[in-house]
């Protein structure tokens, strides 16, 4: 198996990162060889999401090892561990199915540390005799970890969420918005057309376009600006961080979309940009490696009522303004 990736892999990565083939980008589960492994070589266990598999193999150019690819339904290590497909049972079954015990004469498995959410090490040992070692979080640290005789230092074991790590998540966030955006678009045009003459197609198109632009600015605030600025935005709650990043986008909307709008309309646009941003920022909790479910529930119980109230106020101001 190659430890370098090809042009084909590159475009595959792009496709997965923007969300096009994210749910079907898989590797066939099984036991693979990198370099020329023997009976003493390490067995590294991973998920069958192609990006996980590529991340691993690219780090192994100087290593002889076996790679045991589990069937995690094409889901990455951490999500699969959380969802129960990278599980104790799956490890045991794969070890038996691919007869790992006939290929190596030791009884050690190296799992990514983030798999510990789904795998109970002592149960694997009890069921198939293999001792689970939780290796480093990032595949890049694997060669060093193996050289240190399966000892991981602190830096290898701490999850990070750096600017590049956050930036790479933005395209898929935007891609996932395509469908809800279409629904919003329909509503935006209907609401914008309502006026003293019941419904005006001209107003629907003209005012609808402005509301659409405000929506896009809200998306910029909540799904682009907020992930990038995450550690520097004050407040711990994401919906509030989104209000702040949305404020920046809303100020832009105030000047950019100011073409003879009335005050209620201006206020509606301002409010709408911040609401969209706040909602999307709240949704970004699912993409981070540090938000707890209890915390997310806590902030949603506070954020969602505010977002609903702001949306209602936006609609009242926007629909009402032709009558004022």
């Amino acid at each position: 198996m190659a430890t370098t990736t090809s042009t084909h892999d590159f475009w595959g990565t792009v496709g997965a990162r923007i969300g096009l083939i994210r749910n079907t980008y898989r590797v066939v589960p099984g036991l693979y060889a990198v370099g020329s492994p023997g009976p003493e070589s390490s067995v590294l266990v991973t998920a069958n999401y192609k990006l996980s598999f590529d991340a691993l193999r690219q780090q192994l150019s100087a290593v002889d090892a076996w790679i045991l690819v589990l069937d995690t339904r094409g889901i990455n290590v951490w999500c699969a561990a959380g969802k129960g497909t990278f599980s104790t049972e799956e490890v045991i079954q794969s070890v038996n199915r691919y007869r790992v015990s006939e290929v190596v004469n030791h009884r050690d498995l190296v799992l990514p540390q983030l798999a510990a959410t789904g795998v109970t090490a002592r149960e694997v040992k009890g069921a198939c005799g293999f001792q689970v070692f939780f290796g480093p979080i990032r595949a890049a640290d694997l060669p060093a970890y193996l050289q240190q005789n399966k000892h991981g230092d602190e830096a290898m074991r701490e999850v990070t969420f750096t600017l590049p790590e956050r930036a790479v998540l933005i395209p898929v966030e935007l891609f996932l918005l395509a469908k809800p955006l279409l629904v919003t678009l329909a509503l935006v045009f209907v609401l914008s057309g309502i006026g003293p003459s019941l419904f005006s197609l001209n107003a629907a198109l003209h005012r609808g376009l402005i509301l659409l632009e405000a929506t896009l600015l809200g998306i910029m605030g909540g799904a682009v600006l907020m992930p990038l600025l995450l550690p520097w935005l004050p407040c711990r709650q994401f919906w509030l961080k989104g209000v702040l990043s949305g404020l920046a986008a809303a100020v832009v909307s105030w000047f950019l979309l100011d073409t003879g709008r009335s005050l209620p309309e201006q206020l509606a646009l301002f409010l709408w940009v911040m609401t969209v941003s706040s909602y999307l920022a709240m949704n970004f909790t699912g993409s981070t490696p540090f938000t707890s479910p209890s915390g997310v529930e806590y902030e949603m119980r506070r954020g969602i009522p505010m977002q609903i109230a702001a949306t209602c106020l936006t609609i009242v101001l926007w629909v009402g303004s032709p009558f004022f």
Partner: peptide, 18 residues
């Protein structure tokens, strides 16, 4: 999950608003 004596308790899950 990995504590051998259940000395740790936590209500586990994914922190995801969606």
């Amino acid at each position: 999950r990995n504590c051998p004596v259940q000395a740790l308790t936590v209500s586990p899950g994914v922190g995801c608003a969606a």
